[in-house]
C-alpha cells in the first residue's frame, strides 16, 4: 500500500465502503418503508409504541375508508394529469430558455438571467393572496390553469437548464448541427433536447414531485372536491375525534408510487450506465 494507490484500491476498504453505503442507504429509505407499514395498521393503532416495524392487518379497513370517505381515485387522476402537464410544459419551455441563456451571446443576457434568478429569491408565500384575486378575475378558479400555466417556464427550471447546458453541451455538436443545415429551432429539437437529458431528468423529477405535492394552491384554486388533488383529499382525513391515521398513511403510501415511478424513469438518464463521459472510480 503506497500513497499512490487509489483510496478504494483494495478489496477490503471497498467492501467496507459498500457496507457503509448500504447501511446509510437503508437508514434513508427506512421512513419510506415505514409509511407503507403504518398504512396497514388500523387508525387507532398507528401511533402505538414501540413503533410498528412489520405490516399489520388493517389494510382492507384503511382502503375502505380511503375509497369511501374521499374521492381518492379521481383525485389521483387529477394529480397525475396536473403533474404530467406541468412537467411536459416545463421541460419544453425551460430547456428552450436555458439553451438561449447558455449558448447565445445577446444583449442584456447577463442582466436578464440575473433577473430570472432574482425572482427565485422572492418569498412566494404571500403572493398567493394577490394571485388569488387575479385567478378570480380570469375565471380560472376550479380549473387546472392556475396550477399549470404560471409556472410552466419557471425560473428554477431555466436556471437549472442554463447551468447544465452551459457545461454539458459541447459547442461542436451545435456547430455540426448547424452545418447539417438545422435552424435555431431545429437545433433545439434535434440536438439540444436529446443531449440535455441529465439536466432535463432532474427538472422532470423536481417538477413532477413539486406539482404532485402541491397542497395550498390546490386547496385554494380547486375548491371542488371532484376536481382537486391528492394531498388536499388526504388532508381531509386528518381529524381529531375521528381518527383516520391508518387510511391517511395508506393514502400517502400509495401516493408515493407515481413519484417513485417518475424518479426511476427519469433518473435512468442521470447515470446512463457509465458511458463515455463518466468519472472513473
Amino acid at each position: 500500500m503506497t500513497a499512490r494507490r487509489p483510496m478504494f484500491g483494495t478489496t477490503v476498504p471497498r467492501g467496507a465502503a459498500m457496507i457503509a453505503l448500504t447501511a446509510v442507504a437503508l437508514l434513508f429509505a427506512f421512513p419510506f418503508y415505514y409509511i407503507f407499514v403504518l398504512g396497514t395498521w388500523p387508525g387507532e393503532r398507528v401511533l402505538e409504541l414501540p413503533p410498528h416495524l412489520v405490516f399489520g392487518n388493517g389494510l382492507s379497513a384503511n382502503l375502505e375508508v380511503l375509497l369511501e370517505r374521499v374521492p381518492y381515485f379521481s383525485s389521483f387522476l387529477n394529480s397525475l394529469g396536473i403533474a404530467l402537464t406541468q412537467t411536459v410544459l416545463s421541460l419544453f419551455f425551460c430547456t428552450m430558455a436555458g439553451f438561449a441563456f447558455a449558448k447565445y451571446r445577446f444583449r442584456f443576457r447577463k442582466q436578464l438571467l440575473g433577473f430570472v434568478i432574482a425572482t427565485l429569491a422572492v418569498p412566494g408565500f404571500l403572493n398567493i393572496v394577490p394571485f388569488y384575486k387575479m385567478m378570480v378575475a380570469f375565471g380560472w378558479i376550479n380549473t387546472w390553469l392556475p396550477l399549470v400555466v404560471p409556472g410552466m417556464a419557471g425560473a428554477f427550471g431555466i436556471f437549472l437548464m442554463t447551468q447544465f447546458l452551459a457545461h454539458g453541451l459541447p459547442d461542436e455538436l451545435l456547430d455540426a448541427g448547424a452545418i447539417d443545415g438545422l435552424g435555431e429551432f431545429g437545433l433545439l429539437i434535434r440536438v439540444v433536447f436529446p443531449l440535455a437529458r441529465p439536466g432535463m431528468a432532474i427538472l422532470g423529477i423536481i417538477t413532477f414531485i413539486g406539482s404532485w405535492n402541491s397542497f395550498t394552491s390546490a386547496l385554494v384554486f380547486l375548491p371542488d372536491l371532484s376536481k382537486t388533488t391528492l394531498p388536499v383529499v388526504l388532508a381531509a382525513l386528518n381529524s381529531r375525534v375521528d381518527n383516520n391515521l391508518g387510511a391517511l398513511m395508506l393514502g400517502t403510501a400509495l401516493s408515493l408510487l407515481p413519484m417513485m415511478a417518475i424518479f426511476l424513469v427519469f433518473s435512468r438518464q442521470i447515470i446512463s450506465g457509465l458511458t463515455a463521459g463518466a468519472v472513473k472510480g
Binding site: 395550498t216 386547496l219 385554494v220 375548491p223 371542488d224 372536491l225 388536499v232 381529524s239 381529531r240
Partner: peptide, 26 residues
C-alpha cells in the same frame, strides 16, 4: 350542498388567504 374539506390548519389558511384577497370563499 357542495362541501370542501381539509385538515384544520389547511382549512383556515385557505380561508385567510381568500379573505385577505378580498374575494368570496364558500
Amino acid at each position: 350542498f357542495k362541501f370542501q374539506t381539509a385538515d384544520m390548519n389547511g382549512h383556515h389558511n385557505r380561508l385567510a388567504t381568500i379573505i385577505a384577497a378580498g374575494e368570496a370563499a364558500n
